[in-house]
Computed example of a mutant assay.
Amino acid sequence: MMKGFSQVAALAALIAPSQAALRFACGTVTIQRLDPVVEPGNIGSAHLHQVVGGNAFNASMNGDIGNQGTCTTCTFSEDFSNYWTAVLFFKHTNGSYKRVKIMENDALPAGVNGGMTIYYTQQDFNSNGKQKITAFKPGFRMTVGSPTQGKDGLVKHKGLRFTCLTNGKSTRFPEVDDFPKTPCKSGLMTEHHFPACWDGKNLDSPDHQSHMYDTQPTGFAAGGACPSSHPVRMPQLAYETLWDTAEFANMWPKDGSNPFIFSYGDQEGHAYGTHADYMFGWKGDSLQKAMDSSCMFNACEGGKPLKSQSVAEMNKCQAKQLVKENIDGWLPALPGQQMAKRDSKRKY
């Protein structure tokens, strides 16, 4: 079970300076149907994504992403990586859909435009386990979870969880493996923890996951030793996305059925297909410097050792909109689903 932020900070302060952990905000850079990892080149991917990070985000992305783009929505101005997840929608009893907006974490600066919380930690929140942490390399990418996985996928990926924000945005437990069964007073948080053991050779793999291996029992917990097949310990990457579901509290179906659905269209009323994508894009050796340091959270800002920027600068950054479609207001279908239904009727 994940500790609250205040508990984490207090515990970290008591430990010798061998730890390094980044926790920072990245505002929305775009919301559109693009996926340069799973569907490279497709202008109009299968489902809608909530994307943060560098403004070079595009249908196809190759090379050193840290040298592409002109700005980033992240606190650290050297981080041009892209981080993205499926978008959450509310499904009305009349069959229409409305996009659920995201909101910034209250442990981070106020005013971030649709912020996502990004973490790079070492073995856990409190110690690097005296291991060398090797930063991701230019060209590196990976995914966690899959829109086609069932509940057994969440048994395997214990870092894919949901938290009903019952006591404000700082609620951090209990963590569950599916949508909450009742309205959440302050919103819903989705959590995506990526594996941290690398094979040391491949920047990607056909399934975008096999080059990595997970040894963590759950969330922000100490991972076991990396296996010989994946011997390189990399940062523990995690996303927290806070969805502002409170808008829909009074629209909850009277039969008690779950009204939320992710943009990939799981019509079973479950969230087992939750997933996230990552494309590394830190400039130069900036991330390695951070992992080699003893800074924690906002103490890493202001050149100690990472350069940082204001919320206003973060919010000005946007990626080019390549897929022209309406994603706001009440929609008759999930974005991309009308086209999918049409194409399914074609004869080839």
Rank of each mutant, 00 (worst) to 15 (best):
2 M>K: 11
2 M>G: 04
6 S>A: 14
6 S>F: 04
6 S>N: 12
15 I>P: 02
23 R>E: 10
38 V>I: 14
39 E>C: 03
41 G>V: 08
45 S>N: 11
53 G>L: 06
55 N>E: 03
56 A>M: 13
66 G>D: 03
67 N>V: 07
70 T>R: 12
72 T>C: 09
75 T>P: 02
75 T>V: 06
76 F>M: 06
78 E>Y: 01
89 F>L: 01
90 F>D: 08
91 K>L: 04
91 K>I: 07
91 K>M: 07
93 T>R: 05
99 R>V: 12
102 I>D: 01
103 M>E: 15
104 E>Q: 14
108 L>D: 04
109 P>W: 02
121 T>C: 07
122 Q>I: 05
127 S>V: 14
130 K>I: 03
133 I>V: 10
146 S>V: 02
150 G>L: 07
150 G>T: 09
151 K>V: 09
166 T>W: 01
166 T>D: 06
168 G>C: 07
173 F>Q: 13
175 E>S: 15
179 F>G: 05
182 T>W: 02
187 G>I: 11
192 H>F: 14
197 C>A: 10
209 Q>F: 00
212 M>S: 06
215 T>H: 04
217 P>Y: 10
218 T>M: 15
225 A>T: 14
241 T>Q: 10
247 E>W: 00
252 W>A: 06
258 N>C: 10
269 G>V: 03
272 Y>S: 08
283 K>I: 11
291 M>C: 03
294 S>Y: 06
297 F>R: 08
299 A>Y: 14
300 C>A: 08
303 G>F: 04
303 G>D: 03
308 S>E: 04
309 Q>T: 01
313 E>V: 05
313 E>S: 13
315 N>W: 09
318 Q>I: 04
319 A>S: 11
328 D>F: 00
328 D>T: 08
329 G>F: 02
329 G>R: 03
330 W>N: 13
331 L>Q: 08
337 Q>I: 03
337 Q>F: 14
